[in-house]
Amino acid sequence: MTSMKVLVTRPDAQAKVTIELLRKHGFKVHHQACLDILPVEPQSVDGLQSKQLAMDLDTFDHVIVISTNAAQFWLDLVQDYWPQWPVGVQWWGMGESTQAQLMAVGIAAKRPVMGDTSEALLADLLPQIQTHHKVLIVRGCGGRETLSDALETAGAKVNYAQCYQRKLPHINREQLVSVAEFSPQAVIFQSGETLGNFEALLSGQDWCNKQRIILVLPSARVAEQAKILGYQVLLTSGSASNQAMCDTLLQTIQQQAPR
């Protein structure tokens, strides 16, 4: 067991499971969201496009759901049009939690074998792509184009259903004081955007010493982002899952323990 103090930065809706897992393993945990997740407006361009794509779901060969947030907002929309899921559509969930959300409503979703990254998904998906295939990527507004670029190069036609938006949260003085009093030793990030928001919102506090604070990061790409920002103690889990993040911290503590 460990008494290390860990700051969780996940959006409010996803933080509870992360916190419970860390506390189960003895970590002291504080939560301060560094990312807000909001649905797109139904009558916005993205909202209307997502609605049309939901109605056209049976025309796609592959549907890729990027995150648990994407699964939540997409399923809220698409279940209105499809009481039974269309046959012939292969679903993909990015990560174990996203896959579990899809399977909970009867969708036989696959997930990447080698990790929770776009590159891992492409390793599994590209061999199955044919030039006439249509692929739908369900995600938040904006984001990396790695999947789309590779799939289009392989001959697929790609559409985006952008069903939620990510926002920089407002942190008030009381919240800043609360984090400072907790004085985290480690901070967990599930995305590069959350890391960027943390840098803007919290990195100026005295407790956030970039030479000593431990950052737990989901991929080598986000670790490189942290390195550019000046952080020096970087742990890469290789996955954004709660279990992978927790295991990465535990392994590091075990390695540092006196023998």
Rank of each mutant, 00 (worst) to 15 (best):
K5N: 08
L7V: 09
R10W: 00
D12Y: 00
T18A: 03
L21S: 00
K24W: 02
K24S: 04
H25K: 12
H25W: 12
Q32K: 04
L35M: 15
L35F: 00
P39T: 12
V40I: 14
Q49W: 01
S50P: 05
Q52D: 11
L53G: 11
V63N: 07
S67V: 10
N69D: 14
V78E: 09
Q79S: 10
W82T: 12
W82D: 09
V87K: 14
Q90R: 07
G93Y: 03
G95D: 06
Q101N: 15
L125S: 14
Q128I: 03
K134E: 10
R139A: 10
G143S: 12
R144K: 15
A150K: 13
A156Y: 07
R166I: 09
R166M: 11
P169Q: 09
N172P: 02
Q175W: 01
V177P: 01
F182H: 09
F182L: 10
A186L: 06
A186Q: 06
N197Y: 07
E199L: 01
G204C: 03
C208T: 08
I213E: 01
L217C: 10
P218A: 00
P218I: 09
A220H: 12
A226Q: 13
L229E: 07
L229S: 14
G230C: 10
G230K: 08
L234R: 14
L235N: 05
S239L: 01
Q243P: 00
C246T: 15
L249I: 02
Q255W: 00
